[in-house]
Structures are given as C-alpha cells and as structure tokens.
Design a binder for these strands. Structure first.
Lengths: 336, 336
DNA sequence: GCAGGTGCTGTTAGCGATAACACATACCAC
DNA sequence: GTGGTATGTGTTATCGCTAACAGCACCTGC
C-alpha cells in the first residue's frame, strides 16, 4: 500500500503538504496542489484510516449490537441507524449476540478495543453488565428496545406495557376471558413489561386474576411452539393467545396448525411486532406495531448529540408509542 | 483511556514487559506477570486495537457488502459469514448498498481506507469497477451471489440458470405455455441467468419462442407490482408468473390481489429464493431455494484461505445447486 | 575459566498520519 | 525601513503499540 511518504516523494514536496492537500486544511499553492493530486492519482493513493484514527483519537465508527439480526424488527432498526450514520459521516459495525450475554460481553470488549466512538446496544438479558463496562470506559452508549435495571443511560424503546395493554384490551373487548401470553425470558424488560400490560388489561375484566396464563420462554420459534403446546394442554384451554414477538407467533402457529385449530374461529392470535410493509401479501395477524425504524434513528440521534457534546449530562429516555392494528387473526370467542 | 504506558508505570516495569504479558509472547517472570496483571485489573486497561493494527498491518476484520440487508436471503448469508468469521477470530463490517453503484463505490473506498483484510461483495449492477478497485489495491476479494463480467475473481453463487430452468420446466410440465418472468435489472447476472434458464425451459415446449414474456425491473416490491400489472395487461394474459426474487413476488402478489385473481386457480406463481424455515407458518409458494447460509460460509472460507496464503493463484468459482420445492402456488392452468 | 545457552528486561525505532511550531517569502501600511 | 499580516512549506514530535536488538544474570559443560 502506498503511503503519504510515497506521494510526497513523487510530488517532490513534504508529507505535510500532501496532508494539507488531502484534508484541504492550511495553505497549499495551486502548483503544489496540482503536483500532489497528480501523484495521488498516479499511485492510487488512499489514506490509512488506522493511522488517522490513532492520531485523531476518533474512529468515526459506531456499533450497533442486536440480539437477533434475522428478526426484521432489528433489521428495520438497523436501517434507521445506518441512514442516520451515513448522514453524519459515520460507519456502523453490526454485531449479533443471539441473545447470549457471553457473546455480548465478548463483542463489547472488541468494540472498546477498536475504539468505536459510541455503542447502540440491545442488551441480551436484563443485567446491565455490558452497559457498566462501557460506561466505566467513558464510552457513549444508548440502550435500545429494552430497559436495564439500576443503570442510568440514554435509552430508546417502544412502549411495551401500553402496547400489550391495548391488544389485550382488544381481546377482552371481543369477549375473551381466558388469554395466554407467550413471552420471552423473565429478566428481559420487553418480556416483563408486556406481561405487566397484559395483567393490567386482564385485571379490568377479571379482578380475581384467574383468567390468564403467563408462559415465559425465549424469543424464538422453537420456544413459541413449546409454549403454545403447553398452553393448549391446560385444563381450561385459552380462547386467545398473545405472542410477545414474531418468532414466538410463528412457533405458536405451527402448534395450532398441528392441532388443527382454525384462526380466528377456534382461537384468536395477537402478536407484538408487525412485519415490514411489503413483506406479507395479505397481512393476517392482529398486531401491536412498534416504530422500529424510528427507534433506530432516534437512538442514533441521541448518540450523535452526545458525541457532538450537545447532550445534557443526565440520561435521556425516549419511549415511542406502539400502534394496535386489528386484522383477521382475532375474533370473538366461540360461544359454548 | 489508559495506555500500555500507564500500566507499565503502575506496575513498575517497561512497556515491553507489559506487552509481553498481554500477548503471552517472549519471556516474563511470574512476579512481573503478577504485577502487570494487577495493574491491568486496577486500571481496567484494554489495548488500543488501532495502534496494534497499524503496527501489525492487519485488522482482523473483513467486510460483507450486500445490496439489501432487509432481504432474508442476504441476512442468512450474513449469518453464515459471521459464524465463520467468529471461528477464525475475525470481526465483520456489514455494508448495505441498496443496489446503488455509487453507494457501493463509497463503501469500497471506506473499506480500503480502514484497511480491512478482505472483502466479500455482492456487487450492485454488473460492472466490475468495485472489484477492480479492490484488486488493484491488492485487497483479497470474493464476489457473492452474482457474477461480474470480464473480471477474474473468486466467486460463490447459487446456480441461477439451472434453478430457473427447473422451476419453469415444472410449470411447462403442468401445461403452462404462457409464462411471464418478472426479474431484476438487465445488467445483473442473477437477473439475466434466470432469464436464460427460463428461455431454455420454454424453448423445449415452444421452439418458436412466442410463449414467453420477459420483464426487467428492480429486485424490489414496487417493481414487482408494476411488472405484474404490465404483464397482466398483455393481450395474451400469462397463466403463470415466475418472480425472480422474494420482493418481486410480494409486489406481484399485491397486483394479483387487486385484480382478484386466485392462486393457483386463476394463475400460478413461482419464486426464486425461499424464506428461512420458521418464517412462514404454512409455506405456500413454489420456490427455487438457494443454500444462502452455505453461500456465506463458502465465501468466507475462500477468503480466509486466501488470507492464510493457502489459496491457489488463480480465481476459484463455487456454484452451489438450487433446489426446487413445489408447494401450493402452482397448478395446471385452467382449461379454456 | 570461559564459551554458550536460557531466562528476563529494557531501549530504540517505526507503523502512517497530523498538530504544533518554525521559517521562509511577499506584500501592505505607515 | 520597520512592523504586521497573509501565504506557503518544512521539521519535529506524538498517537499506542510491538519487532528487533542489546544487555545482563545465571547456569551448564568441558
């Protein structure tokens, strides 16, 4: 690879002059400029970013750590982040933890070593270890989608509680009194907040609290399947299922299919998170849609504000509203 | 941020001793080791990767440039790449060009400046400019999914031609004689190869070549919609549509829906690329499935072989077979 | 007694860029 | 002519790390 020095020699000037031409900083005579530009073209010179970054103590890179890159919810967030980063002239490193706290810790380590300027993190699990790790090293951090307990940090997420409340309210409004919620791990805020919203809505029609069934599992298809099987084996079979994310819903659907239950005639299904428009020909699921793209852009904005030194000292919290979209997977329960 | 020097001072040794302890290279007495490790813990020291990389002239980073990160075909490839990279101790930079050659060129520039060790590229468009740019700078490169003309490079892709042939063969076998193909840009190999396979299969039943309709467009939903509308306005309305990717299929479905055409009763639909398992409750589309994950791992392997100096000089080509999966979106045409 | 290892540590230089400073020259005003 | 400003260029040091070399103590073997 050619270096500044090679260019300088070929152009017959000092390295500083070349540097000044490249960065259009300081003075450089038209003749020198021309000579340097000719040399750059001839050699196909491209500056070494590593050296620059080492000198500048800035990498113009941020990282986005998500728990599952296959989930369109997170790819949509990633799109929002990338678009904001581009307009600010930043590159993005995408990292995927598969919901594993060890993977996450390993990635955080790598990101600190590579001296990214800031981190957008969807924390795996509920403990704030990674966030603390980042904070003690002075790394600007924004937590996305989930809340971590006992840690003060910028955060952006959808309103899980209100979203869950609205969809369960919709189900109770249809007459359902026996609704199962299939959700993720107990430690994760999106999981517990959705359960909280669900309980709140149920308690309005069922103050004794006997008409629900809460199943904690994982945010994936296999877990959705097994939770659905378990829910349906209960003595009082639920008349509606609320899946706390996409993949859980797919797994649950597989279970319902196997049992030859029709939706919504035999059982209603509602889901947290919609698919991006254009993904499904004829959307069928009643969902709570979160503004995923906006979660990405808002989080990136908080981070860039902080990087620019324009952010207030204390932590900021942005909770975006979710929207209930009623489609064909929910209906009144069968009278019996 | 603390540096080697800080650690050295606190431990009362030279920076080289600290470096040796960190890298477990060379000799270091147990006492020195202990002192250094204590100092590292106390300061929470983490080495500066930039400085290391600058010194080592290696970043242990590869880049994956794709044209559309929202497409599950590419996220699946990304998963394969990431998994291989992890086992080799490499980080991955994901870049998204949205099928734009300018975006691509800009990213390639950034990647060269950041001195990634190698690039996996799904080229936007068919010209090999980006590949040439990389090659003239000695950057190991593997081209994925698409073929670039007139450029010698390692490449890994699915067999578009054979895949298209098999699905169109399936349609002609059902009795279809008027099949429209909705595909991507003319310059892109996946687009033209699929058309070639389509023509080959059609020519067997229709040597005159009058029973087809080829529409070039973009690999996205909007284009799928408009191509389908145009195809259906033709004098001889096609009895089957072959969509050259997922998004085109979704767009086409929207058009068919609007026209109240039933599938497969009124019109058959076949698609290139399947969705990952667990994504759809009850898969409906007849598809040609490419081994996306494997495309990712094979491409990463070619790259790592080259990085290790174990690859032969000349370019290598891996063409992976695609698989026809017949489902419910195709049937014999209506007799009329 | 000394050559030749082994174990351990430190010094120096350099990866490729740039900030800071120094040093020219030219031109203006007074 | 002197001081001040604008323009243009080069030298030096440094970002944080590590390869290469040098040095020293200690031991082994003949």
């Amino acid at each position: 690879m050619t270096t500044l020095n090679d260019v300088a020699k070929l152009a017959g000037v000092s390295t500083m002059t070349v540097s000044r031409v490249i960065n259009s900083s300081g003075y450089a005579s038209p003749e020198a400029r021309a000579k340097v530009e000719r040399a750059i073209d001839e050699l196909g010179y491209m500056p070494n970013g590593l050296a620059r970054q080492l000198r500048a103590k800035r990498t113009k890179t941020i990282a986005l750590v998500v728990t599952d890159i296959r989930n369109p919810f997170f790819t949509t967030i990633a799109g929002g982040v990338e678009d904001m980063a581009r307009t600010h002239g930043y590159a993005v490193m995408f990292c995927n933890t598969y919901e594993s706290e060890e993977e996450e810790a390993a990635y955080i380590r790598v990101l600190i070593e590579r001296r990214v300027d800031g981190v957008l993190l969807v924390p795996a699990g509920g403990a704030g270890n990674s966030v603390l790790m980042l904070q003690t090293r002075g790394m600007p951090t924004v937590v996305l989608d989930r809340h971590v307990r006992d840690v003060e940090t910028d955060e952006v997420r959808g309103d899980s509680r209100a979203g869950a409340y609205s969809v369960v309210r919709h189900l109770t409004g249809l007459g359902h009194r026996n609704i199962a919620i299939l959700t993720g791990p107990e430690g994760v805020s999106t999981s517990t907040d959705r359960v909280a919203g669900y309980r709140e809505a149920l308690s309005e029609v069922c103050p004794g609290g006997e008409c629900g069934q809460v199943l904690f599992g994982e945010f994936n298809e296999a877990s959705g399947y097994s939770m659905a099987r378990r829910a349906l084996e209960a003595d009082r079979r639920p008349t509606a299922i609320f899946a706390a994310n996409n993949f859980i819903a797919y797994g649950a659907m597989r279970a319902l299919h196997e049992l030859e239950l029709r939706i919504p005639e035999d059982i209603s299904v509602a889901v947290f998170d919609d698919l991006p428009p254009g993904w499904v020909v004829d959307p069928f699921f009643t969902v709570v849609a979160q503004p995923a793209y906006q979660i990405g852009t808002e989080a990136a904005n908080l981070l860039f504000e902080r990087l620019a030194g324009e952010a207030p000292e204390g932590p900021r919290s942005i909770i975006l509203p979710s929207e209930l979209i009623v489609r064909r997977s929910t209906a009144a329960p069968r009278p019996d």
